[in-house]
């Protein structure tokens, strides 16, 4: 597939995705072969199911970070037939960081969700084993190493 076809098909793909899930807030191509889809938490399970089960995307990992507007969770999937990496981006509010666990859909996500629980203090609802994963047993509760210490509103 040459460059032009690739662009064409990704445009089709994006519009198709938007029709399927009208809740999608924004879709951007961030780099060559990298797509980022911004969604509200309500459709997370649906799109994950669609990508993982129907389109057979390979689950890669979840990146989590503490950004200005909230906690950002980025679920990365890979479409190995075309080499595109598709990412789902959900934003969680700083004061209420909870989200549905995706483990029932994607088995492999279990570990990374526990890791994010450790490092950022995000709660995953219905997680099969919400226990400490990476940090030592005597690590103080409520101290999350990846949370930013100083935020704008705190200043």
């Amino acid at each position: 597939m040459n460059e032009k076809d690739n662009l064409m098909s990704i445009e089709n793909y994006i519009s198709d995705l938007k029709i399927r899930f009208p809740q999608i807030t924004n879709v951007e191509v961030i780099n060559v072969k990298r797509l980022m889809v911004h969604i509200p938490t309500s459709v997370l399970a649906q799109i994950t199911g669609y990508w993982f089960n129907e389109l057979n995307y390979r689950y890669i990992i979840v990146s989590a970070m503490d950004s200005k507007d909230g906690f950002e969770l980025i679920y990365h999937y890979s479409d190995d037939s075309s080499g595109w990496i598709m990412s789902l981006n959900v934003m969680l509010a700083h004061n209420e960081p909870t989200v549905e666990s995706m483990t029932p859909i994607v088995y492999g996500i279990e570990w990374i969700e526990r890791e994010i629980m450790d490092i950022l203090g995000i709660q995953f609802l219905n997680h099969p084993k919400p226990e400490r994963f990476l940090l030592p047993e005597n690590w103080p509760e409520g101290n999350y190493p990846y949370r930013r210490k100083i935020r704008k509103e705190d200043r």
């Binding site: 072969k33 390979r58 890669i60 190995d80 037939s81 080499g83 994607v106 088995y107 492999g108």
Partner: peptide, 23 residues
């Protein structure tokens, strides 16, 4: 597929993926 395993582990189960070729 369930666990998202990669590399020789995946290729030994007939899953034809390799980043060097796919991307």
């Amino acid at each position: 597929h369930d666990f998202g395993a990669v590399g020789p582990t995946a290729r030994a189960s007939g899953v034809d993926i390799d980043v060097r070729r796919d991307d």
